[in-house]
Write a protein that binds this DNA or RNA. Structure first.
Lengths: 346, 346
DNA sequence: ATTTAGCACTCGATAGTGATGAGTGCTAAC
DNA sequence: GTTAGCACTCATCACTATCGAGTGCTAAAT
């Protein structure tokens, strides 16, 4: 059976009405609110076909129809009008980001807050993934006799520090020279490469001075270890409470299941780690994480210097206002990219 | 009317049963489960007195009694047995912290996660309050021609960096000298003092060299501004989903109200900012934040070097297992203090 | 002077009932 | 191919009756 254009109109009407009301949509409603020149009876016939094709479902006899995952998918891919963000929202985002200053992690956190506030769904965000960036500058600073501070600047502007404890008192001069040597040798490498590097390889051929070598063998392993610990990016979520306003979560058990997921960083990490560069919609059971089979996720990435460094997403029920959320996510990541370029201007 | 010891026993029984069951407690239950040698009728008389005194309440006629805030307060202050943490929990905390390495913020986040997992309530935590610590080391690093990195180490081991943009290309040597000058002048000051400091005061009398002065007037304001932005400490919360298991939040509206609060960092900040050094219990309407009038909060602080640098807390219903939570919070902050001392060993 | 048994009373919770109405599928007429 | 008509389904809601946990009071027992 083919999907004639009238069937598409009816499907679109059902989906949009359901997105607004969360109530099963009947043939009468479609006829009265959306397609006034088609009678309910005709629509009923078409709906029976749409159900057979798997685009809509009936919760029970004598109820209206509800879109299936497959229906939403068709809607998102072909039916939905590509809304451009409305001016009000656009200005709001613009303004919010204009005032933002400070560290990049804080910026991402703020973006996540903004995203949940504007969409009224839950948002998640991953701070820049350190390991994908490249070393731009490394500096060892002597804090006191037993502590060395390593400061790492990467090409995405992410800055990390770690304190390295040493038994021996290393002289400031020596430290500076080691800093320089390491810089020469390591700059340009990605953090991922760096932490997996063979230490002896770094050591060899740098300098034959025994003093330095001794210090290096002490400092270097600690440094790499510290890097490893900060490898996994921070994950933020926000606006979970929004979902409690939705009828799909009036059942406390459902709500609980959802909230439990938001508390599990490893699951959120799974969602965000391998995100396609363009805005992506994942609907219901399409999701690999089975606990999210009643949710849809919209994800996008943000980049600096053409390099993807992190991602951000919106979680909501499959009955999500896809066009609105997509437009907001797009606008937000665009602004994020702009401001990142500005902040980390080199 | 005085609170005889039998009344106390009955009150204690009512509270402990209510903590376990969340159901109003009747005279029969008290007699059967707790005070077998007193008849229900006698207990009824005593309960009438306890109600008159305001320690318990009746949701409606023909229901059992429920503790009031005042009742819980008496229980916490005088009736409750001071439980020492059970060995299993103790070992668990000990072990969790043993394996923890990395940045201090991450440690606090982990502590919060642990706290909610063990208590089955929601937890909140404030990362070290930067502003209360004192400057120990300041270093300016030249990243490239337009960016200077300021690294700040404080006496509590907290490390912050901020990138300062400059129009003019400052030479490495000059930067180092400025670093040294600033160090001499500023070390020992608290960050709070520092950000409120008059810039001209710092400038004056350092060095008459015009070159440096020029640089200083550019760098210093930016530095102080950057410090101001990171002044407010990060706040984490965890385990909110736990509360959805409790019958008091089977009403979605109540749950929503609670979750909304957890999303508002300024409210959490209010809760955590002025916390007494010893573990504190705040019950129901005792709380300044009226949205939390049905909640109890248990807060405690963690310190480094005898100086309180942050706080941590548990949020739950007034029907909270006070003795258990207190013992866990105490044990956890103790371990936190220990490990902080170890990590930031100077 | 307490304590306790007995009893009438209150009131929320639960289950059963019937009416209502939104929505369907089918049939026959347009 | 489209639509009006109609019998049928089934969730929802309001109403009612019943049940039982728990109370307060009174009078008897200790």
């Amino acid at each position: 059976m083919s999907l004639g254009s009238r069937k598409q109109l009816i499907l679109q009407a059902i989906i949009e009405d359901y997105i607004n009301t969360a109530e099963p949509v009947g043939s009468r409603t479609v006829s009265k609110k959306y397609l006034k020149d088609i009678s309910p009876a005709t629509i009923r016939n078409e709906m029976a076909d749409l159900e057979e094709m798997g685009y809509i479902e009936q919760p029970h006899t004598s109820a209206g129809r509800v879109p299936s995952d497959k229906g939403y998918r068709l809607y998102v891919d072909r039916l939905m009008e590509q809304k451009t963000i409305d001016w009000h929202d656009y200005e709001f985002i613009r303004k919010e980001f204009m005032d933002t200053v400070g560290e990049i992690d804080r910026l991402i956190k703020h973006a996540s807050k903004l995203l949940s506030a504007m969409t009224k769904y839950a948002s998640i965000a991953m701070a820049p993934q350190f390991k994908r960036t490249c070393l731009k500058h490394l500096q060892l600073i002597k804090v006191d006799s037993h502590n060395i501070l390593a400061v790492i600047v990467t090409d995405a502007g992410i800055i990390k520090n770690s304190v390295i404890r040493t038994d021996s008192d290393i002289e400031v001069d020596a430290l500076e020279k080691i800093s320089n040597m390491l810089n020469q040798k390591l700059i340009g490498l990605s953090i991922e490469e760096l932490v997996n590097m063979d230490i002896t390889k770094i050591n060899s051929g740098i300098n034959n001075n025994e003093d330095y070598k001794q210090v290096l063998t002490k400092v270097l392993p600690e440094l790499l270890q510290a890097l490893r610990y900060s490898e996994r990016a921070e994950i933020y979520s926000d606006g979970a409470a929004n979902l409690l306003d939705l009828p799909e979560y009036s059942d406390v058990q459902k709500a609980k299941d959802f909230f439990s997921i938001l508390d599990k960083n490893d699951i959120l990490y799974e969602i965000l780690k391998d995100v396609s560069e363009k805005t992506t919609v994942t609907i219901g059971k399409e999701n690999k994480i089975h606990q999210l089979k009643d949710c849809s996720i919209i994800t996008a990435t943000y980049s600096y210097n053409g390099k993807v460094i992190g991602s951000i997403g919106v979680l909501g029920p499959t009955r999500m206002n896809y066009s609105k959320v997509i437009s907001i996510v797009d606008c937000l990541t665009q602004n994020l990219n702009d401001i990142l370029t500005k902040i980390i201007k080199t």
